[in-house]
Write a protein that binds this DNA or RNA. Structure first.
Length: 596
RNA sequence: GCCCCCGUAGCUCAGUAGGAUAGAGCAUCGGUUUCCUAAACCGAGUGUCGCAGGUUCGAUUCCUGCCGGGGGUGCCA
């Protein structure tokens, strides 16, 4: 893992200072504890208040070792610290590090300007493959807000891993198999006709699906008929297959339209039915490994040791289940992408037991087959869970009709963006395209504005707000930064007087630019695009402060002024921030309009 | 019953590999536009960090118990 340059310099210098301040104890202990740069580096905290410095090293835990009180230790060490690029100051029991503003500005801004959108690129993933499964909608159902979350998080993770140098494979795993298709077939046979499959076919299919569940309450034979219909499908019976294919085609076209709208991409679409011929070999392998048993007529793997319910591989009637397919899928992917670094499943938290079960079965299989530890997939597979999207306090459910359609949301948000443009910037050339960028941006942002694991309530008023911590706020800041560059009308050069950027507010912006690469790496490590969202909001806020800062007379301290060197320096900052916001929005899956 | 997640300002949420007065946005109130896009910026106020113990120099953060909310739990996915 690459270390932060300044942080490491400070840690090394501080370790040296400890050695000089406590030579006797250093002689005893050697290069460990506070006398080792690595230990200092790991122990560095960030002060709550940025004005206290960039990093802080608390010395409290070393009072026993050094036999002095914290303030004395800190004072002694700070005095002995010789750090080329900054200062070290003792405040109570802390060593506060400040980076020389001119050096920091020069280092960061010139790097950003030179690297552009490649700033923050990393080679940590070189030669490694990360699979990311996301979206995975159910065929024959409209795309609701519930599916949006997986789609948006996964799409962002794919981009993040690419930036970090991984070979990222975005996988869509549509649910096109299982008993539910028995239900669809029965519903269609009973209440559908040719017109069902034309016009707004997905809506028609949904109507049938909802009706099925209503009728099944009264007629208990319906579920039996469905099981039978699914068996026909698994057996390849022509009429059933034909219907299933028709449902699939309709859905695929619909899905693709939605993905195009959202700008979501995949590298591999592997649907449940693609695993049909992979299940039997997987089952055979599990049998050979001695994992399976028959229980109440079903083929299962018991997991009692793990306090988990058994995994059902085959139902009493011989039909397969989703766990069967996920297990077959795990094995298939491991074969197709041998020794992948990670395989992530961006799926609702409701399925966490299911993934625990599947992973446990794989672990048992690899154990039984005595596969060497470094050739096992188990530790590389991760369920990236996320919370519910609720509507009016209830979980959204397709069959209950308690759902909000994504397209309705996009259309409302886009309408609002159009209205805002008409009132705020009526002369905007590309108003329609920009409305889409903003409307869709607001929708995507809504899924990335909190931590993954939180449940979120869908609220119209929340998505239809473009002020405060929102996607449009970031886009607006970006547009203004672009506007400044247009107005400046000259090339922005990194060859400026960096002393002119040493004010606290500029320094805050520059610190945030400096942190961007670390934030990307963290979001990849923790599967949390939200980290990028939060960072961009901080960056935009910090810049807007500079942008609207007033001088002592109450006049705006403008970026572009008669003072050419000052303007050049500030424009270097402007362009840096603009490129980072642009890149950050891109990683989240939002577009960054140049004007709005 | 068992397992998992959550409980921080009026609302929505950050912050937790233990650290210095707990932060944003929204909402409320007040201010900023002969000026680079006011979708912005500035100022004002609110907290038993669910409760009770424990570990620690130090706990919103770690451990235990309790209360409250959500989810999962063998033939749906």
């Amino acid at each position: 893992m690459t270390k932060d340059k300044y942080k490491n310099e400070f840690a090394t210098a501080t370790a040296q200072a400890f050695r000089e301040a406590y030579p006797d104890i250093f002689a005893e202990v050697g290069e460990a504890e506070v006398f080792a740069g690595d230990v200092i580096y790991e122990g560095l905290a960030k002060p709550k208040d940025p004005s206290m410095g960039r990093f802080a090293f608390p010395v409290f835990r070393y009072v026993r070792l050094l036999k002095e009180k914290p303030p004395e230790i800190a004072a002694k060490v700070a005095a002995a610290t010789a750090w080329a690029n900054g200062t070290s100051e003792a405040v109570a029991g802390f060593l506060n590090a400040r980076i020389d503003p001119v050096k920091q500005s020069e280092g960061v801004v010139s790097e950003v300007l030179t690297k552009g959108s490649h700033y923050g690129d990393s080679d940590e993933g070189r030669g490694l493959t990360n699979l990311v499964e996301y979206s995975s909608p159910n065929i024959a159902k409209p795309f609701g807000m519930g599916h949006l979350r997986s789609t948006i998080i996964g799409n962002s993770l794919r981009k993040i891993y690419r930036k970090l140098g991984y070979d990222a494979v975005g996988i869509n795993y549509p649910g096109d198999w299982g008993t539910q298709f028995g239900k669809m077939i029965v519903a269609y046979r009973k209440w559908g006709d040719n017109t069902t499959l034309t016009g707004n076919a997905v809506k028609n299919l949904l109507t049938l699906y909802v009706r099925y569940h209503v009728e099944a309450e009264k007629d208990t034979t319906l579920d039996d008929q469905s099981r039978e219909a699914f068996q026909q499908l698994e057996a390849g019976e022509a009429e059933a297959v034909k219907l299933w294919e028709a449902f699939k085609d309709i859905s695929n076209a619909e899905m693709q339209r939605v993905y195009d709208l959202l700008g979501v991409k995949f590298d591999w679409v592997c649907s449940e039915s693609d695993l049909n011929d992979k299940m039997e070999p997987a089952i055979e392998r599990m049998k050979r490994a001695g994992l399976t048993s028959i229980s109440q007529g079903a083929l299962v793997v018991h997991l009692e040791d793990e306090q988990l319910p058994p995994v059902l591989l085959k139902k009493g009637d011989g039909a397969t289940l989703y766990a069967t397919r996920d297990l077959a899928g795990l094995i298939y992917r491991w074969g197709k992408y041998p020794e992948f670094n990670k395989s992530l499943y961006v799926v609702n938290t409701a399925q966490s037991d299911h993934f625990k079960q599947c992973l446990e079965v794989i672990a048992m299989l690899e154990e039984a087959e005595r596969i060497p530890a470094d050739k096992r997939m188990t530790s590389r597979v991760k369920h990236v869970d996320f919370g519910w999207v609720r509507f009016a306090g209830k979980t959204m459910s397709t069959r209950g009709g308690n759902t909000v359609l994504l397209e309705d949301v996009i259309s409302e948000a886009t309408d609002l963006a159009r209205t805002k443009i008409a009132e705020k910037n009526p002369d905007l050339a590309d108003a329609e395209a920009t409305s889409h960028m903003i409307g869709i941006g607001a929708v995507i942002f809504s899924q990335l504005s909190v931590r993954r694991t939180r449940d979120v309530d869908f609220r119209w008023e929340e998505i239809l707000t473009f002020e405060g911590e929102t996607g449009p706020y970031l886009q607006y800041t970006h547009a203004r930064l672009c506007s400044l560059q247009r107005r400046y009308g000259q090339d922005v050069s990194p060859d400026v007087d960096f002393k002119l950027l040493s004010g606290d507010e500029e320094q805050r912006v520059i610190e945030l630019l400096a942190d961007f690469p670390r934030v990307i790496a963290d979001s990849g490590e923790q599967y949390e695009p939200y980290f990028i969202t939060a960072h961009l909001l901080r960056l935009a806020g910090a810049f807007n402060k500079v942008y609207q800062r007033k001088d002592a007379d109450g006049n705006i301290d403008k970026i572009i002024s008669d003072n050419a060197p000052l303007t050049a320096a500030r424009m270097a900052l402007v362009k840096s921030v603009q490129m980072i916001i642009n890149e950050g929005l891109h990683l989240l899956g939002l577009k960054a309009p140049k004007e709005m």
